[in-house]
């Protein structure tokens, strides 16, 4: 088991294999607990390096229709914060890839930041991404999470001025999340690979952290192009689309096959 706080080991295998890491996002409880666990197992078997586990929130401002709908399915099935944390803990016990939570401030706030930090760390997760909390508001939840050994990867967008991007990289932990294009999550719009490559090059001297690129990545070709320049490739909406409408073993099969197609596309660096 990877202890929380040892985020670095997440990327160790990818580094050894001279390729970008693959990070896969799923929503806890979409469409049910058993399916989520089966999907996480399948993603792990397909070579995914890190699972972003979405804790469903009904008003996800940073997310497009696919993830918003997945969150609604999970909430409709009664998934609560404690259920999401329990799914993570069980997945880790079953030998899943490391898990990073992804949710919004309000559910954490309501649950209690200290309590969330404690229980998230106990579940074996390595950190949490909270996309509606920019650098200036990190005090709202950052310190208790860090004290619990959890990493908080921060996001940099194409609109982020360079000086601010450097400060975000500095304050980030685990990795730095580069948003590949304007807008919210979703596979409908293509990633801007050129921007991602330029950003990776510009930020490289500013941080020792891995630079991960996400938003809009949906095809093996995207994974190949982004994987050639970034330290990690993040896929979410397209993966959810790949198993939406199915459950259990069938969902796991579809998710695994899709993740494998991206994993196989990641180029080995010279």
């Amino acid at each position: 088991m990877i202890a929380s706080g040892e985020f670095d080991t997440v990327f160790a295998r990818a580094r050894t294999e001279r390729r970008a890491a693959l990070i896969a996002y799923v929503v806890a409880g979409d469409p049910d607990r058993a399916t989520t666990l089966a999907v996480i197992d399948a993603l792990t078997a397909a070579g995914v390096d890190l699972i972003e586990l979405g804790i469903p929130y009904g008003d996800p401002l940073a997310d497009g229709p696919t993830i918003a709908a997945a969150a609604q399915r999970a909430l409709g099935g009664g998934t609560k914060m404690a259920d999401a944390i329990a799914i993570a803990a069980e997945a880790r016990e079953r030998g899943a890839a490391p898990i990073l939570y992804f949710t919004y401030l309000n559910p954490i706030d309501r649950y209690g930041v200290e309590r969330f930090a404690r229980e998230a760390a106990a579940s074996g997760a390595v950190g949490a991404i909270v996309p509606d909390v920019p650098l200036e508001e990190l005090a709202a939840f950052g310190p208790p999470l860090r004290a619990a050994g959890l990493a908080i990867p921060l996001l940099i967008a194409p609109t982020t001025p360079p000086e601010r991007a450097a400060r975000i990289a500095e304050a980030s932990s685990g990795f730095v999340y580069l948003v590949s294009r304007l807008g919210v999550t979703g596979a409908r719009r293509e990633p801007d690979v050129g921007w991602a490559a330029a950003s990776v090059a510009r930020l490289r001297p500013a941080t020792a952290l891995p630079l991960a690129v996400g938003f809009g990545i949906s095809t093996p070709a995207h994974a190949a192009a982004v994987g050639a320049v970034a330290d990690a490739v993040i896929v979410g909406s397209a993966l959810i689309d790949a198993y939406a409408g199915s459950r259990g073993a069938e969902a796991a099969r579809r998710a695994g096959a899709y993740a494998r197609s991206l994993r196989d596309a990641l180029p080995v660096r010279g």
Partner: peptide, 19 residues
């Protein structure tokens, strides 16, 4: 920082912070 006492602030995705 956009606060009225403990209320207010800027809780938005990074893409909107500069805007």
């Amino acid at each position: 920082r956009g606060y009225f006492g403990r209320f207010g602030g800027v809780f938005v995705p990074e893409v909107l912070v500069e805007a």
